[in-house]
C-alpha cells in the first residue's frame, strides 16, 4: 500500500518500518542468502571433516569397549562357573572318599569284631568244656569218696552194733542206696 500523506511524517521517523515486514524486504535477500551459504558450507566442512568422524570413532570405540568388556565378563563368568564345577567335583570326590574310608573301616572293624567274638566264643567254649570236665571229675571223685565214706561209716556202724561187718554186702547196699539217691 502506498504511503498515505497523513502518515508521511510519522513514517519519516521510522525508516526501518517503511518496508513493513523486514522478511519481505527483497533488498536484503542477496546478503542473507550469501551469508547463509557461507555459514552452511562452513558448518558442513567442520562437521564432515572434524566433528562427525570424531564422534563416530568415539561411539565405535565405546561400542568396542563395551563389547570387549561384556565378552571379558562372559569369560570371567565362564571361569567362575568352571571353578565352581571343579570345586563341586572335588567336594563330591572327597565325600565319596570319606564314604569309602568309613565303609572300609566299618567292614574291617566288623571282621575284627567278628574274629574277636569268635575267638572269645572259642575260648569260652574251651573253658566251659574244661570246667565241665573238672566238674565231672570232681563229681566222680566226690561220688567215690561218698561211697568210700559211706562204706567205712556203715562198717563202723555195723561194728558198733556188734555184728561182724560183711564188706561185700555193705558195698552192695551202699552202691544201691547211692544209685537210688542219685536218681
Amino acid at each position: 500500500m502506498a504511503t498515505s500523506t497523513s502518515e508521511a511524517a510519522a513514517e519519516a521517523g521510522h525508516a526501518a518500518e517503511k518496508a513493513g515486514m523486514p522478511q519481505l524486504d527483497f533488498a536484503t535477500f542477496p546478503n542473507q542468502i550469501f551469508w547463509l551459504l557461507v555459514t552452511l558450507v562452513v558448518i558442513y566442512f567442520i562437521l564432515s571433516r572434524f566433528a562427525l568422524p570424531r564422534i563416530a570413532s568415539v561411539l565405535a570405540e565405546r561400542q568396542g569397549t563395551i563389547t570387549g568388556d561384556l565378552a571379558m565378563a562372559e569369560e570371567l563368568k565362564q571361569k567362575a562357573l568352571e571353578a565352581e564345577e571343579a570345586y563341586n567335583r572335588a567336594l563330591a570326590e572327597a565325600r565319596a572318599e570319606a564314604q569309602k574310608i568309613v565303609a572300609e573301616n566299618k567292614a574291617r572293624m566288623q571282621t575284627e569284631l567278628d574274629a574277636a567274638i569268635a575267638k572269645a566264643d572259642a575260648e569260652i567254649a574251651a573253658k566251659l568244656a574244661e570246667s565241665e570236665a573238672a566238674i565231672a571229675e570232681i563229681r566222680k571223685g566226690a561220688v567215690k569218696a561218698v561211697k568210700q565214706v559211706a562204706t567205712e561209716t556203715a562198717k563202723e556202724v555195723v561194728k558198733v552194733l556188734g555184728f561182724k561187718p560183711d564188706p561185700k554186702l555193705i558195698t552192695k547196699a551202699v552202691t544201691e542206696r547211692l544209685k537210688g539217691r542219685a536218681q
Partner: peptide, 23 residues
C-alpha cells in the same frame, strides 16, 4: 550482498556454538 549484518553476526555465533559443542 557482502555487507556484514546482524544476521551475519548471529550466523557466525551459530557456527561458533556448533564448533564448541561438536568439536
Amino acid at each position: 550482498w557482502y555487507t556484514p549484518t546482524n544476521a551475519t553476526l548471529w550466523m557466525g555465533i551459530a557456527i561458533l556454538v556448533i564448533v564448541l559443542l561438536l568439536v
